[in-house]
């Protein structure tokens, strides 16, 4: 693709029969280091504030640290305590429930993108409107829904006004219901990005295959299932991994502003638990262990999701 500065320097000065001058030699030496110099600022920042902390997370997870004194090594104690921690297990269970909604999380943007791709009337406007919540901070979304879902708030008001008062609920104060509400809000705020991703994938679709299937007499649904779906699978995988990561680590701002983990602990999530342990309880080492466990769980679930999607391909 591209030639490095050295190869150019070797190939270029064929006219120069006396060999490189001192100045050219200096330039070549600098040239060899150029890419490293260009990378240095980014690399320094990444090592200092991302790579080193990642390693330190593992180290801290074996310590007892309160944020003031030096971390004390305590072996596996944090992890054995985690295994018996009722709140953490409950939080992790909620995250697993959230991940279990992955099919909905994929299907909604997928089918909406499919619908928009057929250029329904006003599709540009819809694409625009669906994307809007994605530019709002989860903090804004949390506070907004905090107002809308109040017992005497607009949603219940609307339901009563159209004669569906029986459906009015204390949305944020019913243990079984509230987690579902939180999941619905997160899906609502992110599906627009999924629609964009699937739309741009559909635009890059191999139209000839679709055409061929059509000529062979396949129905729209058959084309969708057997031709389009498999072509989009890499994109679906990408979207699925993003969601798996998000569903373990992106709930904190929403929970913080909307439910504070309640009612009771019914919307406690792992990232919220991590923050609470660290900054309300002062158990920094313990919170690090939560982070490490989370990273492992995310890796496992993401791997499993991809394996599942690929395995379906082999079956078909």
């Amino acid at each position: 693709m591209s030639s490095s500065p050295e190869t150019h320097a070797l190939g270029g000065p064929a006219l120069d029969r006396r060999g490189p001058t001192a100045r050219i030699r200096l330039r070549r030496a600098v040239g060899r280091f150029t890419p490293w110099l260009l990378l240095a600022p980014a690399a320094a920042l990444l090592v200092w504030l991302l790579a080193y902390p990642l390693g330190d997370a593992v180290h801290l997870s074996f310590t007892n640290w309160d944020g003031f004194s030096a971390p004390k090594s305590i072996g596996l104690d944090n992890f054995t305590e985690l295994a018996h921690d009722k709140h953490f297990k409950e939080a992790l269970l909620h995250n697993l429930i959230i991940v279990a909604s992955l099919p909905i999380w994929i299907a909604i943007p997928y089918f909406i993108a499919w619908g928009l791709h057929t250029k329904v009337w006003g599709w540009r406007f819809f694409r625009f409107a669906f994307f809007l919540p994605a530019v709002f901070s989860p903090v804004v979304i949390g506070v907004y829904y905090g107002m809308v879902l109040k017992p005497d708030g607009p949603l219940n008001g609307l339901l009563r006004a159209i004669g569906l008062g029986g459906l009015a609920h204390e949305w944020l104060n019913q243990p079984g219901l509230t987690l579902g509400v939180v999941i619905a809000i997160i899906i609502w705020s992110t599906f627009g990005v999924g629609v964009l991703i699937f739309l741009s994938a559909l635009a890059n679709l191999d139209e000839e295959l679709v055409e061929a299937a059509h000529v062979d007499g396949a129905s729209r649904w058959q084309i969708q299932r057997h031709v389009v779906f498999w072509q989009l699978l890499p994109v679906i995988e990408f979207w699925a991994i993003i969601i798996v990561i998000a569903s373990f680590t992106a709930f904190f701002p929403l929970i913080y502003t909307l439910t504070q983990g309640g009612p009771g602990f019914s919307t406690y999530t792992a990232d919220y638990d991590l923050y609470q342990e660290a900054f309300a309880g002062g158990n920094m080492g313990y919170a690090s262990a939560i982070g490490v466990v989370l990273l492992i769980v995310i890796g496992l679930v993401a791997g499993l999701t991809v394996a599942l999607l690929r395995w379906r391909r082999r079956l078909a």
């Binding site: 902390p53 990642l54 997370a57 944020g67 680590t249 923050y275 690090s288 989370l294």
Partner: peptide, 24 residues
């Protein structure tokens, strides 16, 4: 390898390294 590291770090969720980054 540098490219691989960049992509790997992209997938790292910020919440997971909150404590060690706070410590730095």
């Amino acid at each position: 390898s540098a490219l691989v590291v960049v992509v790997a770090l992209m997938a790292l969720p910020p919440a997971v390294v909150l404590i060690p980054i706070f410590k730095v």
